[in-house]
Write a protein that binds this DNA or RNA. Sequence first.
RNA 1: GGGGCCGUAGUCUAGCUUGGUAGGAUGCCAGCCUGGGGCGCUGGUGGUCCCGGGUUCAAAUCCCGGCGGCCCCACCA
Length: 482
Amino acid sequence: MSEQGITVSKSEDFSEWYSQVLSKAGLVDLRYNVQGFVVHKPWLMRIIKAIYRFFEEELEKTGHEPVLFPLVIPEENFEKEKEHVEGFKPEVFWVTQAGDEKLERRLALRPTSETAFYYMYSYWIQSWRDLPLKLYQSVSVYRNEKNTRPLIRGREFLWIEAHDAFATHEEALNQIREDMENSRKVIWEKLGIPFLFLRRPPWDKFSGAEDTYAADTIMPDGRVLQISSTHDLGQRFAKAFNVTFLDKDGKRKYVWQTCYGPGIWRITAALIAIHGDDKGLVLPMNVAPIQVVIVPIYYKESDKERVLEKCRKLEAMIREAGYRVYLDAREEYTPGWKFNDWELKGVPVRLEVGVREVETGTVTVFRRDLRVKEKVADSELISHIRKLENDILEELKRRAKEFFESRIVTATRREEVEEALRSGKMVKMPFCGREECADDLKEATDGGKVRGTEIDFKEGDYGRCAWCGAPARLIVYVAKSY
RNA sequence: GGGGCCGUAGUCUAGCUUGGUAGGAUGCCAGCCUGGGGCGCUGGUGGUCCCGGGUUCAAAUCCCGGCGGCCCCACCA
């Protein structure tokens, strides 16, 4: 039998739970016949658009402007930065033919757009007066991934990429702080997704970057997910693309660049995974496509009109107050069916209105996050909803933070590291800093990866490496990842 | 790239071993009945059994090839 609801528990079988929520809550349709390419349904797109809007607002507040660059990048651009090509080449899709004609030079579908942006930056940047240049685009990118998972690893996925150019390295480094703050404001404050902002080890940098910083969150199965990244590109691309300016001192200089990429797909995946429960999605008000749903309940035809009349009044009042409200007056479904369905879809607030409510001048208000009902007087409904807007987000943040913190443990010995990784934890530990040690750890623990150090971390003497016992120079976080 | 599993109405699936009229549930449509936690009844609708070839009187079923999907390993800024 094809169940309409979620049939597994999130804590027991996260992978299956996640697949079921995506399909059953009407977020995606995975029947499209190309692996790794996902059909995004309206419920998902509305959530994604809300998340995009938050990031775009923050970016524009800090001086970024929107642009749209071409999807295709000629091979000659792509080849200019050696390390960049080597890193991305294995997963680039190429356009090689148009109609029956073979193209003289093949075109890459952007896997990321440095080589499109910076080609133009060499034209646009001439003077110190042109700096800083801060542009972003909200687009999909293309990578031929082998193991795909909807919203987590795709061959086509949605993100924002902000490409900034500065006169000095110092300004570029400040930009990385600003990017981190941007992530904090949106990912944590608005969406309630906790994360660590880490500086990646040298062997795990973006291809072509001097340094990579990234936000890692922890999924319910304990694996970490990189949800945004910021790269200090130094002057490497500036040199490859000849992006120079005449400074105040009359000297021609290369610009310093950064690139910030909040992974909208993955942030959405984290939102679904972290806040969801065994009944389905749980959405904060600020991204919910429908914030308040009204379900009318009547037994007799004679009660129908007075119940519906009250529902319509409430609907108008709530809409007037600025909320996205939907009166579910469909007659082909029972109230019980609707309760389950809207919970599956994660609508934060449900109002139940029947004869009882009509006669007492009240509304039964159901909170999706706590799954509790309470009676509220009609006259206090709007202020109650306003309060819930904040309360629900705070509750989601509280739970998410509690989970996140419970998943990070410290270790100083090899056995502790092994045990922690086995039980799905992220490990904070002293580390020697050697790539060979990280490789050995990864192999021995079936995938435990050194994710990096905290951004303000200073190297020093931290005793012995928890893995190999050599003198430790760093404190790092280690976890299995997606 | 290596290994494994699997393709039957929108969905989940029976049938395949042992070749012989494709069956059920759910969904969808119509009508009734209902409604405070996924109601019930009646009727109807919906199939290139992934594609191509082979064997056979006869193929969803057996054989070969292809395509597609899923899982594990490797890879993964």
